[in-house]
């Protein structure tokens, strides 16, 4: 493998891991409520921006990061409680419009609470590149990959081994039967938004030292995460991870071998191609409900 290819793959995997985290957020909320949460990108923004401002206020990262994640989770729960839950029974399209409205509101609030500038977050453990197979990787990329891997394993354990996780899956398959088992489906909805918001925030914090962050960083990352979720099959956890990594690698190779001008277009080409050729995505259920 050429050093150049290795470099593209490493870059692609790093960005792809971020897309995967955002896509997982889409999947969890979609499963719990059949809502496509277009405010998902704003959780990414809140995570990054809150961490930057807390760090600038003098808090160590070890404190700033958990506080930022909890802030995003609280915003996610509030979104579910005050915007999505009251509209229960509304059409899927209405719910999607609500989340789009929420994302505009959250971006506006971010410019008030913070500002419209670009911000840098210090890397977690320096910026001395590490050489691997002729390519180099930033320590921050290792953080991105490591934390993403840990989260994927944690989610696998949560949904595969705990009763609460299984209750969430059960609710997504059959909310009526879940209620008859004594599952509080309203709690499942709030939990799914809180969990998705946390994942988004973590993604935003991990990537901030590499790409900078700002009030509108969630727009593009949200769309990329959505593309990854569609590619993998909306609602599939495995699909979200594979879709994210594939999209990241495709972008990186496209930018390297074709032109970086087309980098962002790749996500949209993928969305269109998937919707056209295989609407259920790589790992999606065939009967998945489409908008």
């Amino acid at each position: 493998m050429s050093a150049q290819l290795a470099q593209y793959l490493l870059t692609g995997l790093t960005v792809g891991a971020i897309y995967a985290l955002v896509a997982l957020g889409f999947a969890i909320i979609y499963n719990a409520s059949h809502v496509i949460n277009f405010a998902q990108g704003e959780f990414v923004m809140i995570g990054g921006m809150a961490t930057v401002s807390l760090a600038n206020a003098g808090l160590p990262l070890l404190v700033a990061i958990p506080v930022a994640v909890l802030t995003a989770a609280a915003v996610g729960v509030a979104l579910a409680k005050f915007a999505v839950e009251p509209a229960r029974g509304a059409s899927v399209v209405t719910l999607i419009i609500i989340t789009i409205g929420a994302s505009i509101l959250l971006r506006g609030l971010a410019t008030l609470v913070w500002d419209k500038k670009l911000h840098a977050l210090q890397p977690f453990s320096g910026d001395q590149p590490i050489a691997i197979a002729g390519a180099t990787i930033l320590p921050q990329s290792l953080w991105v990959l490591g934390v993403t891997l840990a989260i994927v394993l944690l989610l696998g354990w949560f949904f595969g081994r705990t009763l609460t996780g299984k209750a969430m899956l059960a609710t997504s398959h059959n909310p009526l039967a879940a209620q008859l088992c004594g599952v509080n489906v309203r709690f499942v909805l709030l939990l799914s938004f809180g969990l998705s918001a946390s994942l988004g925030a973590i993604a935003g914090i991990l990537i901030a030292p590499i790409t900078l962050t700002s009030w509108d960083v969630g727009v593009m990352l949200g769309l990329k995460g959505f593309a990854a979720a569609i590619l993998g099959g909306l609602g599939s956890g495995t699909g979200a991870v594979v879709g994210g990594l594939l999209l990241g690698i495709a972008e990186s190779l496209g930018a390297g071998y074709v032109s970086s001008a087309y980098k962002d277009a790749i996500a949209f080409v993928i969305i269109l191609a998937v919707l056209f050729f295989k609407p259920s995505g790589l790992f999606g259920k065939k009967s998945a409900e489409r908008v």
Partner: peptide
């Protein structure tokens, strides 16, 4: 419930465990 409404993709044992939620 009418029509059984089991959680199709989940295992038999998981269905039962959810009954004991």
């Amino acid at each position: 419930p009418e029509g059984r409404q089991v959680f199709g993709p989940l295992s038999v044992e998981d269905n039962l465990r959810l009954g004991g939620y």
